[in-house]
Each structure stands twice: as C-alpha cells, then as structure tokens.
Computed example of a mutant assay.
Amino acid sequence: MYTLFQQDNAPCHKAEMVQEWFDEHNNQFEVLTPPPNSPDLNPIQCLWDVLDKQVRSMEASPRNLQDLKDLLLTPWCQIPQHTFRDLVESMP
C-alpha cells in the first residue's frame, strides 16, 4: 500500500532519525512537505487544538505514560467524524 504523508517543516520532522525512517520505507510513503509555518495547510493542527481543549477541560492528570495515552485516546475518539471531514474539505 502506497500512502501520502503530510508533515510540516518542524525541526523534529527534519531530524536525521525521522529522515532515515522515511528513507527505509520510501516504497510505502510519499512525503509531502508544505511550506514552513503553514498550519492552515495542515488539518491536523486544528485537530490538536480540538484535542487540547478537551483534555484541558478534564479533571484527571496523567500519572504515567499509560494514563496519558488513555487521557488522550478518549477525547480523540469523541471528535465527531464531520470535524475531520470539514477540515480536509477546507484545504485548498
């Protein structure tokens, strides 16, 4: 299966380790790199905002990595599907 993968130009995405991983899997992905500082071209940025607001409204704080995963997974799964669709359709 061949997949398009979109990322921004954040330094963590340009790390040597990340580039090596994509090089090793180049037959599976085509990496699309938008211009720097373009969150408006990346729908995931808006989803992080939705997730952040939901997580901040919770009373529980994570005590360990598993707690953090559980804390993030629940609100992520509760984001309505139309939110994803609307964000993708808003891209030029």
Rank of each mutant, 00 (worst) to 15 (best):
E59P: 02
D8H: 15
D70W: 01
N64I: 00
C12N: 11
T3W: 13
Q81A: 09
L72G: 04
P62V: 02
D49F: 10
Q7I: 06
W76A: 09
N27C: 03
T74E: 10
R56Y: 06
C46G: 11
V18K: 14
S57C: 09
M91I: 02
M1W: 06
P75W: 02
M91R: 01
N26F: 05
S90E: 00
N9E: 15
Q7E: 15
Q28V: 12
M91H: 01
Q45Y: 02
N26V: 11
P80M: 07
L87N: 08
D70V: 03
R85L: 07
Q81G: 05
D86A: 14
A10K: 04
D52E: 14
W76P: 11
P75M: 02
L72C: 08
Q81W: 05
Q19N: 12
C12K: 15
A10S: 11
K53R: 15
N26K: 14
Y2P: 03
Y2R: 15
K69N: 09
V50H: 04
D40K: 10
A60T: 12
C12A: 15
N9Y: 05
H82D: 14
P43I: 00
S38E: 02
L68N: 07
P34C: 13
Q66V: 06
D40T: 08
E24S: 11
E89W: 00
S38H: 03
T3P: 01
I44V: 06
A10Y: 07
P80A: 09
E16H: 14
P39K: 01
N27F: 01
C77D: 13
V50N: 04
P75G: 02
C77P: 06
Q7V: 05
A15S: 15
E16S: 13
F22G: 03
P92V: 01
T3K: 12
D67P: 07
N37Q: 12
S57E: 13
K69F: 11
L68P: 05
R56S: 10
M58N: 08
I79D: 03
T83H: 11
F5L: 15
P11W: 07
N9H: 13
L71S: 07
L4E: 11
L72E: 06
L4R: 07
L73K: 08
L65E: 09
M58Q: 13
P36C: 05
P35W: 04
H82T: 11
L4N: 10
S90F: 00
P75R: 00
D67C: 06
A15Y: 08
N27R: 05
M91D: 01
C77H: 12
V88H: 02
E16N: 13
A60M: 10
Q78M: 08
D52H: 13
P34V: 11
Q45A: 10
D40A: 12
F84P: 10
A10H: 08
P92R: 00
N64Q: 03
R56I: 04
